[in-house]
């Protein structure tokens, strides 16, 4: 939902970043306002996932130039966990398995870290159980998942639903979904998309990173950006995704090379 008067949640200017000394992001610009859903599409290696990791503060990614402002703060000044408690949430492309840590404990510790950052008291085990049972409905997850180790032995679809469960619990101002749709069957995709739609409000924003137009049938973006060679080279509405699906990326890349507007 576009509302030009709403708060700017994320503002990225001329962002450049390296991995292992190789420049991956080469001058990226993006502005996201409250209430908006953005899709970033692009070929493999265009820098989409790197961008998501840089936003979350992964230590392997070195920002060499540019700036990122998140709700008015300089995001690059913040440690990864401070970014999270300030309202950034990254749904991982490959959620990690953490043997020995129960999902329930993990979620409670994360939730309490957020409360603590807001200056609120930690909630106890029982109150937390009530809260999390409620959130399970968002992604139609069975309570038995809470007592298993984090993501251990989960199917691909279960891991992605578990990511959205975390999003439902932590209520971020900006959720970045990194290829959350990859490898999902259609039922799991509908569940995940349904969860994201339920969580989208006029106060928060979502950035979907995807290869495929398919998810955008269920989560309708306000903007579709095409990334290539570490930059956003074109931006359109939801129809751009359909056009990319039928025509491929070559025409956009060509237009960018020749400087002709698509």
């Amino acid at each position: 939902m576009i509302n030009e008067n709403s708060e700017i949640i994320l503002s990225v200017r001329d962002l450049r970043a390296n991995v292992d000394g190789t420049e991956i992001l080469k001058g990226l610009n993006l502005e996201v306002r409250a209430g908006e859903i953005h899709a970033i599409m692009g070929l493999n290696g265009s820098g989409k996932s790197t961008f998501s990791k840089v936003l979350a503060g992964h230590p392997d990614y070195e920002v060499t130039a540019g700036e990122i402002h998140f709700k008015g703060q300089d995001l690059l000044e913040l440690e990864p966990h401070d970014r999270a408690t300030s309202g950034i949430f990254l749904a991982f492309q490959y959620p990690l398995e953490i043997p020995g840590v129960s999902n329930r404990d993990f979620l409670r510790v994360a939730f309490n870290a957020h409360r603590k950052a807001r200056g609120e008291d930690e909630i106890d085990v029982f109150d937390f159980d009530d809260l999390i049972e409620e959130k399970l409905n968002v992604v139609k997850m069975d309570a038995s998942f809470l007592d298993r180790s984090v993501n251990e032995g989960f199917s691909g679809g279960e891991k992605k639903r578990n990511e959205i469960l975390q999003m439902a619990l932590l209520e971020p101002a900006l959720a970045i979904l990194d290829e959350t749709d990859s490898g999902l069957d259609i039922d799991a995709l509908k569940t995940v998309a349904g969860g994201v739609n339920q969580l989208s409000t006029s106060d928060n924003a979502v950035v979907l990173i995807t290869h495929y137009q398919r998810m955008l049938d269920y989560i309708v973006p306000d903007y579709v950006h095409v990334m290539a060679d570490g930059r956003i080279i074109t931006t359109g509405g939801k129809d751009l995704a359909k056009e990319l699906e039928s025509r491929g990326y070559e025409w956009v890349l060509e237009a960018d090379r020749t400087g002709v507007t698509a």
């Binding site: 979350a56 230590p59 440690e79 949430f89 953490i98 957020h114």
Partner: peptide, 29 residues
């Protein structure tokens, strides 16, 4: 594992707390 620590950090858990959680989990098994 650095990636495990980062995953926990990305959920608001500080690096030292993440380390404690992982060590605890290792032993609790």
């Amino acid at each position: 594992q650095a990636d495990e620590i980062f995953y926990l950090q990305s959920r608001g858990i500080s690096a030292p707390q993440a380390q404690r959680l992982l060590i605890y989990a290792f032993a609790m098994e």
